[in-house]
């Protein structure tokens, strides 16, 4: 049985620790990390990598033409391109409150697109 050590930089917090993952093929034998969040990150990154995505959608009737938005949870990394296409096509109307759901269950992921701030109607 051959195990190999893989290194990975943790992005959970600003510290940016280097994690050491002991693997046997696809099986993760052990993760050396400074905290539990780091361990969880390593497992997730190897099996189902996800990222928080912040972007914007077109808004009408507000001070600015774009409303900043973000994903309610980390979003599957391979589908980010699709997500961006969806956001490009979206359009909302002012007023909007911070936390409003702009798009629900986007691309069937169960993840919502949330307004990052208030935008009043002008």
């Amino acid at each position: 049985m051959e195990t190999e050590v893989q290194r990975m930089i943790c992005i959970t917090c600003p510290k940016g620790c280097t994690l050491e993952i002991l693997r046997d093929g696809d099986v993760i034998v052990d993760v050396k990390a400074g905290c539990k969040r780091g361990k969880d990150y390593a497992h997730a990154e190897l099996t189902d990598p996800r990222r928080m995505i912040a972007s914007s959608v077109v808004i009408e009737g507000a001070l600015h033409p774009l409303l900043p938005v973000y994903t309610s949870a980390p979003f599957p990394k391979p589908r980010i391109h699709e997500l961006m296409q969806t956001l490009r096509a979206a359009k909302v109307q002012a007023p909007v409150k911070m936390g409003d759901v702009v798009l629900e269950d986007v691309l069937g992921t169960g993840i919502n697109i949330i307004a990052s701030r208030d935008m009043t109607r002008i």
Partner: peptide, 24 residues
Amino acid sequence: LQCIHNGFGLETFQQDLPGPSYAQ
């Protein structure tokens, strides 16, 4: 307001917020 990326507020709110939400 122009820092629409997330990563704000981990110390203050123990949450990963975009810049505008932190400001709001």
